[in-house]
């Protein structure tokens, strides 16, 4: 009985979350990201750094501007990383079934280490294409560039990374 109640409660929470998004002019993304990379420290070597899961919350400011508030967990080459992002998305071209936009994000977070996590900071810029399945439901892809640095890791090894994040997700 208790399990049934919990499932019902969870369903209601999800329904509320999705519907309030539409009412209050704010949307949410859930996306998968992969990180083909190019530079690390000061060396150029194309490769693959890993992938992650990202949840982004978008309060809509006006017809062209939205805020991005994101949380991302990534499994990367020799580290796990949690990043919180804050940025802005600007619509370049809006049609009936699609929307093209650019966005810039400031990233702050931690590399997950014991006995203490290490601070990571970074910036990224993305170009994004949204395809509208319904008025409030889109599929999107985004491609861009990202630079992150973990100064506390400097004494061990590679502490600066640049990558070309490729994102595929759903917005609701």
């Amino acid at each position: 009985m208790a399990t049934k109640y919990k499932i019902l409660q969870l369903l209601l929470l999800v329904t509320l979350f999705v519907t309030t998004n539409s009412i209050q002019a704010q949307q949410t993304d859930i996306s998968l990201r992969v990180f083909p990379s190019s530079w690390y420290n000061s060396y150029f070597e194309p490769g693959f750094d890993g992938g992650g899961l990202c949840v982004t919350y978008h309060p809509i400011l006006n017809k062209v501007l939205r805020l991005n508030i994101s949380a991302e967990f990534s499994v990367l080459r020799s580290r796990n990383e949690v990043l919180l992002g804050f940025g802005i998305n600007r619509t370049i071209w809006q049609a009936k079934r699609f929307r093209i936009s650019t966005e810039a994000n400031l990233l702050n977070g931690i590399d997950l280490y014991k006995p203490y996590p290490l601070f990571v900071g970074g910036i990224e810029g993305l170009g994004r294409f949204d395809y509208y399945l319904k008025k409030k439901l889109t599929l999107f892809v985004a491609i861009g560039a990202r630079v992150t640095a973990c100064p506390g890791y400097r004494s061990f090894g590679v502490w600066k990374h640049s990558s070309w994040p490729i994102t595929v997700g759903v917005r609701f």
Partner: peptide, 22 residues
């Protein structure tokens, strides 16, 4: 998901360490 960080690295002079992405 936290990984153990190494203790302080003391590298013998008889070896050279090259660090790559992989």
């Amino acid at each position: 998901s936290c990984s153990y960080l190494p203790d302080d690295l003391i590298i013998p002079s008889a070896v050279t360490i090259y660090e790559y992405r992989d």
